[in-house]
């Protein structure tokens, strides 16, 4: 019977890795087999797989936060970003691979929120892998029909005077929201501003942190 090792240490004194000490599942068995066959057939190498995992691990919301903070502080960059977000983020030095990115700017009048109703398309090559809720039936189903109710569940309540623009990632483009810069941050450096930018604020289900709490 499987048991939980969360409170246990391995003989080496490290926590058990959950995937290493649980009974092997059918699908893990398949992953190992597929990986070995791809290496044997010369499709890939163990090094290439490790490098790909490292590259994916290095992609995280802090990258997006740096892009947002620069857009807040550098008007020329903001213009470039809204014109061609793929080119602008590459120009900042981020390896976004072949991803085609569109930046959506929130203002006092417009609030953008991103969903993928057909699967779970996400700007992973900038922000890293999506949160579990982004892939959930509830988020995928409801966001296009009752976005304000979904946003309220995330603690975001918008005035009636703000238009909500939902973006369904149905095809080749990926989307990053540029949240509105919080009031009270005049004169802040891009680094300090980036610390206010949350993952959810770049999906549209959150707002940046308040400067008072940062």
């Amino acid at each position: 019977m499987p048991h939980d090792h969360h409170d246990h240490m391995s003989p080496s004194g490290h926590p058990y890795r959950p995937d290493d000490d649980h009974p092997l599942t059918y699908w893990q068995q398949m992953e190992i087999a597929v990986r070995e066959l791809l290496i044997e057939k010369g499709v890939t190498t163990a090094q290439e797989i490790s490098a790909q995992i490292d590259a994916m691990d290095a992609r995280n919301p802090a990258q997006g936060a740096a892009v947002v903070a620069r857009a807040w502080t550098d008007p020329a960059f903001r213009a470039d970003l809204l014109q061609d977000a793929s080119a602008a983020t590459r120009e900042m030095g981020f390896d976004i691979g072949p991803m085609r990115l569109i930046a959506l700017e929130n203002t006092a009048d417009e609030h953008n929120v991103v969903v993928c109703t057909l699967c779970s398309c996400y700007p992973r090559n900038l922000l890293g892998l999506p949160p579990d809720w982004y892939k959930s039936r509830a988020y995928r189903s409801r966001t296009v029909k009752e976005p304000r109710k979904v946003l309220a569940e995330f603690g975001v309540t918008l005035p009636d005077t703000t238009t909500v623009r939902v973006h369904d990632s149905t095809a080749d483009m990926r989307y990053v929201v540029i949240p509105a810069r919080p009031a009270g941050t005049e004169g802040w450096s891009a680094d300090a501003l980036a610390a206010l930018v949350t993952r959810d604020s770049m999906i549209g289900t959150g707002l940046p942190k308040s400067p008072d709490t940062a």
């Binding site: 969903v115 057909l118 809720w133 959930s136 189903s141 409801r142 296009v144 979904v150 569940e153």
Partner: peptide, 12 residues
């Protein structure tokens, strides 16, 4: 899989 607009519970 074509879920847009269908009824569902709270976002987990």
């Amino acid at each position: 899989h074509d879920m847009g607009g269908t009824a569902a519970g709270p976002v987990p």
